[in-house]
Amino acid sequence: TCHSKGGEKEDVPLATYEHLAPFLKVNAVAVTGDWVKVEEPISTSKLTQSTHAHLLSFAVLFSLTGLIFACSSYPSSVRCALGPWVVVAVFADVSLWWLARLSDEWGPLFARGVIVTGGLAGLGLALQITLSLFNMYGAKGKVVIALLFLLGGAVGGLVIQSQIKPALDAKALAKQPEVKAPEGKQPDAKEAKTDTGKDEPKGKKDEPKGKGVALHRPIHDFD
């Protein structure tokens, strides 16, 4: 509408590949070792929703696991340290999301911190659960808990082998191919030429050509 004849920008025609070519150049960026923003982060409203969900659900759940652990018979120093550990880690985790988002200068550092706080939360939760369970029962109960853990480990291992690993492999494979695809897109230029002769659309005549054009996978997630 804008760049064809009679349009507001008819002085900048974009009808053929040659017309478009000057705008397709990608400026080379020197490798500096600094952080480079490669994709837009999620919107602030989505981050707010996620923060709300995490603080509401995880804080309640992890407070309860901490409370159960606090009622165990381990030394009070261990209970004082590990009881609130997970909740504190989750609060730190969510705080770092926002710090990473809001601070341009230190953002990447805070983003790396998210991995640490997430790991601490996971580790603390695993300790709280296993130590509480084993502290709760006598010898027989401990054997049952151990068997349940073994069973869970076996099922988890099976799921990893049969479901998760193949899915990850397929995902990795899907990301690799057809990077050259946009280069071979000459049909677009042809179609553009025919359209510019006259402004009238040639709908049905163009359809068979379109069917022959292969669909391309996105080069990366942002595409």
Binding site: C71, S73, G122, Q128, S132, L133, N135, M136, Y137, G152
Partner: peptide, 30 residues
């Protein structure tokens, strides 16, 4: 302490702990 709790309470607490563990693990895997 946890050991002195009645058995039904222990079972509920155990199921809760295991459910939290499983839920957290599956959320992380996803």
């Amino acid at each position: 302490t946890l050991r002195e709790l009645p058995l039904p309470v222990k079972v509920v607490a155990s199921v809760f702990l295991m459910a939290v563990g499983l839920g957290y693990t599956s959320a992380m895997v996803q």
